[in-house]
Design a protein around this nucleic acid. Sequence first.
DNA 1: CACACACCTTGACTTAAGTCAAGGACACCT
DNA 2: AGGTGTCCTTGACTTAAGTCAAGGTGTGTG
Lengths: 222, 222
Amino acid sequence: MDIRRFISGIFLFHSFTEKEIDLLEASASLKKVHKGEQIFSEGLDATAFFVVVSGKVKIFKLSPDGKEHTLHIHSPGDLVAEAAIFDSMLYPASCVALEDATLLRISREGFLSIIKRHPDLALKMMSGYSRRLRQFVAKIEELSLKDMKARLASYLLEHSTVENGVTICNLKYSKKELSALLGTIPETLSRTLAFLKQNNLIIEKNNAIIIPDPDKLRIFSL
Amino acid sequence: MDIRRFISGIFLFHSFTEKEIDLLEASASLKKVHKGEQIFSEGLDATAFFVVVSGKVKIFKLSPDGKEHTLHIHSPGDLVAEAAIFDSMLYPASCVALEDATLLRISREGFLSIIKRHPDLALKMMSGYSRRLRQFVAKIEELSLKDMKARLASYLLEHSTVENGVTICNLKYSKKELSALLGTIPETLSRTLAFLKQNNLIIEKNNAIIIPDPDKLRIFSL
DNA sequence: CACACACCTTGACTTAAGTCAAGGACACCT
DNA sequence: AGGTGTCCTTGACTTAAGTCAAGGTGTGTG
């Protein structure tokens, strides 16, 4: 895998000159991880941030009694933990590979020295931050103001596409992971899916959910 | 109130020249609001962000059936809704004054043109963003992984100071507001306070909570 | 192919916390 | 001072969702 080519493809670095890409490349390395492998743990020194090259990783919080909440699942192209390098310098959550993955690791020191010479980089990062804040606001809203039916309905609608006139949501993660992402346990996810099925709001087919009437399901998402 | 003097006191603008402060001042105005007055609503065009000069404002989400969740309460010196001007351009939540307040309003257009000439501003803003993200991660953790006792215990410990060898948390908001901030209803907050009182973990005195044994209360905050 | 393990579903049961109601306390206004 | 409205507390009751357990299914390994 050509690091330079991958770096050039990242939106953040589009305006970099060859020399600047050299500098960044010197601060970067590829990290291959296997499914289940820990990439970093909450509370540890944030020596780097990452960009997902392939595979999927999840960011999550663990409670003392072993319960887990997934903050985000990152796919190829996503930045991971970039906020941690600007303040406090500790990772605020943990990161694990959901499947075999490759990550571009960019060291904090290298990146901070580059961004000081390219503060316009920071301006470019602002919209990414803004989007991340909005995602978190939406998650807080769901956890505090919506029940499981509404959360699941919202998830299904937001992650569905229209294929041959049929609205369909292909499940990209296991149900166990989906339940952790939606803030519940697998039992409750099963029950909520069953409720939606029994009320003819969804049809489950292999690893996909067909939504016969998206407008009807939308009523449940509020 | 001297806008220029206030602007100069904001960390973000410390390195501005007189001329630059002129430009910023031209994009700014003071906004006086009364207790309960709406400053902006979720979904509206984000034409400006704000800095709290005096008083307190809350950022909150409302559900269709009138339930409310407070995302943050801002005090003098805090930036409000600055993220909204970088992406999407809509306010992701609403803002209301908790008491009579004065806000510095900075127009989006003015600020964006200034930041394009001062991208180092964006770099300065990154640590503020990083802190905001951490706050949201902590809130999500509490809503998903902690019960009300733990949440309240955490809040009391984090907002307490030691006065004359006594750990004391002065309540800065009404209990109604505190319950919305902690993600519950007033009844549950009352009950949880009563539980902590009956177990000798807190003593309630006027508008303050005395914590006789912080280490003991900390066990409940996990 | 057989076995082990993890995931998923379902049932019984429990619990945290919300809903509804009412009374008391307090603050504000006339 | 009296009246009104809001907040706060408490009780009775309900509900959403978690805990625990067990069985079925699917996947991976030897």
